[in-house]
Design a protein around this nucleic acid. Sequence first.
RNA 1: GGCGACGUAGCCAAGUGGUAAGGCAGGGGCCUGCAAAGCCCUGAUUCGCGGGUUCGAAUCCCGCCGUCGCCUCCA
Length: 471
Amino acid sequence: MTLRVYNTLTRRKEPFQTIEPGKVRMYVCGPTVYDNAHLGHAVSLLVYDIIRRYLEHKGYEVRHVMNYTDVDDKIIQRAQELGEDPNALAERYIQAFEKNMRELGVLWPTVQPRVTREIDWIQRMVQGLLEKGYAYEAAGNVYFDVTKDEDYGKLSGRKLEDLRAGVRIEPDPNKRHPADFALWKAAKPGEPWWESPWGPGRPGWHIECSAMNLHHLGEQIDIHGGGQDLIFPHHENEIAQSESYTGKEPFVRYWMHNGMLRVRGEKMSKSLGNYITVDEFLAQHEPDILRMILLNAHYRSPIDYDEPQVQQAKQALARLRNAMRPAYPNAPGAAQEVLERLQAQIQATREGFEAAMDDDFNTAAALAHLFDLVRAINQARDAGATDEELKPAQDLLRELGEGVFGLHLQPQDEQASAADIGPLMDLLLEVRAELRKKKQFDLADRIRDRLAELGFRIEDTPHGTVWRREA
RNA sequence: GGCGACGUAGCCAAGUGGUAAGGCAGGGGCCUGCAAAGCCCUGAUUCGCGGGUUCGAAUCCCGCCGUCGCCUCCA
């Protein structure tokens, strides 16, 4: 089965073929670091994390680049408001962002370039675009001339005439066409600047990604990802710059765009003020809950964030985790027929999961296959299967649920601490079993309740009492 | 105004020509002293609405209604 990926450029799912066999060059647009990350940023991180995990699961070696925009209007403005050095401000938010990345458990990008450290590559591209006649200078600025680019608008499906008509802000008098965009911006007093052939200034927003791609991945790449809100103008402009500069098409084989996170039907964004920061979310919920919310939908669909969603994800996650629980105490072993059914489900799950993921990373369908496996595991456990007998199915659940989806189905620390208190817990449960035998349920329940307060859940199954630590 | 996406049970959601996955919530049952977890059974004759194409459509076409995104910085 081959992977098929939806390409925004062609608006179709296409067979996934990399430039170099077995290797994927993937670029994902990172944040502008002028404030704390909100859940929208987290969605993007998690979506491409899951995509990358699946590619690696399939055996690809992924070179994953995620940039930081660490110099731009908003950073400068914010720094001026706070009386802080723009570089220091950017650095502060990069650190905060990376803390969130660690908390969310995303695989670390191979390279994390920053605009301020790529100035020479950026200038080289600007210069090249000028020389080739795709750009022009005006008052210390350099603009890309969209009329020189034959197929400008192909990604977002826009025509130049429409853009001219639809301009909402007053056109920059330096621009020849309203859709022209800055490659290099002349520095205003008090702004960070670099020396250049066109005078002191700094890079425009779009050129950085083109330059970083060229520098870290090459003239042509396999996957370029980002939020759907970046399709226009950001990615459209990237294509224009990169293809005009290198003369090679396509710049990107597969343009991927994730759906927006919404709140009460509207996009979660800074400007609307309807956002929840990653820190705020993580103070209330574990990161896997956000992962579950995403896994339950397709990455290209918008997702509404609300409390019911969170609760549903939480319950679903608990169901996955419960399947990882051990066999009942003194399990006698399941009947041959039961084990055969479990074995058949293992096979069906592996195949179904991969087929779903191969279809443009259909995580919702893949997750459904995981739940089928969950049911089979629980059935087998109820039928008396031993740990040994459950192991192959649970191993698969862990391989796919943890390895590909990035969930934590069996936290390491829980197991470690469990080992330490095991004997103590056995003693307590022994006493409690005596109490129950003597029908002293008030005392037995008190032990159960008190242990629950301490974070240990006791459950009396038909086969004996089991306990586990609760998060 | 232009470009694009979406509308499937109470909720989330997959499914893009062959007769509606999965999860959450709910109801009934099993198990249990109770609880929890788990298991079994249970829900859309129907996929925003109206036409059309087809032997057959949630899936294709046309129209309408509604929601959202982009066109300005945004993951």
